[in-house]
Design a protein around this nucleic acid. Structure first.
Lengths: 107, 107
DNA sequence: TCATTATTTCTCGAAATATGGAAATATCGA
DNA sequence: TCGATATTTCCATATTTCGAGAAATAATGA
C-alpha cells in the first residue's frame, strides 16, 4: 500500500459524520444501508452526506451499488483491514507484550 | 472512546509525515527514537516535525520522555489498539468471512 | 555564567476541506 | 410522459491545516 493511499483513508475517517457513517456500515454488515437511511440516522443533509460517502468510497473504505432508486453503501472490510495492517506493519517483533497491548483489554 | 477522540487520532494519521513518523516508531518498538533522529530519517525541519509529534501525542498515539537533552518518542500501542477496536466495534457478528477479511491475508 | 546542542512555540500566507441550498440526474409507477 | 422519490453535482462561504523561519525553552559541560 502506498503511503498516500493510507493518508487518504485516514483523512476519510478524520471527520465525525464520516466516521459515524463508516461505523454504522460496519455494524450493518454485508447487507449495507441506503444513503438516505444513513443521512436520516446521522441527521445530516443529503447533499452533505453524499459528499462524505463519495469521499469514503474514493478512499476504499466503502462500496456502493444502486438498488432501484436507492444506492446501498457497504463497508469495505478488506480495505479497512489492509489499512490497519499497513499502520502496524513490522510491529511487535520479539515484543509479545506490545502485541498484547494492541489486541488488548478495554474497548 | 468518544468519537471526537477517534477523529482526532485519525486526523493525526492523515498526513504523510506524521504517518511515516508513527510507522517508524512502530518499527522502533518500545525503545522509541529521539525527535532529532526522526526528523533526520524523514528529512523534515525540526520545527515542523515537532509540531507533528506534538499532534500525534495529543491524539494519544505516541508518548514522549526526556532523556537528557533529547526527547524520546515511542508509539503508544495501547492507544493505537483502542483506535482500531473502536473503528471495528460490533463488526462481523455472525460473519466469519468478514472477520477474515480484516485479519486477512496480504499486507 | 556562557556557549552549545536539542527541541518546542509562535506566526502567517497558501492551500485544502466542510457545509448545505439549488439544480441536475436516475428510477419508478401510473 | 408526468410526478414523486432518491441521490448526486455544483457552487459560495467559512473554517481548518500545512510548512518552516525566528525566537524561546531546556539541559549539559566548561
Amino acid at each position: 500500500m502506498e503511503i498516500s493511499t493510507a493518508t487518504t483513508a485516514f483523512a476519510a475517517l478524520a471527520q465525525e459524520t464520516r466516521l459515524a457513517a463508516f461505523r454504522l456500515l460496519v455494524r450493518a454488515g454485508p447487507a449495507g444501508l441506503p444513503a438516505g437511511e444513513i443521512a436520516r440516522a446521522l441527521k445530516t443533509a443529503p447533499s452533505t452526506l453524499s459528499t462524505h460517502l463519495g469521499l469514503l468510497q474514493r478512499a476504499g473504505l466503502v462500496s456502493s451499488e444502486r438498488r432501484s432508486r436507492q444506492i446501498v453503501y457497504r463497508a469495505d472490510f478488506a480495505g479497512a483491514g489492509a489499512l490497519m495492517r499497513f499502520l502496524m506493519k513490522d510491529c511487535c517483533k520479539g515484543h509479545p507484550a506490545v502485541r498484547a497491548a494492541i489486541g488488548g483489554e478495554a474497548a
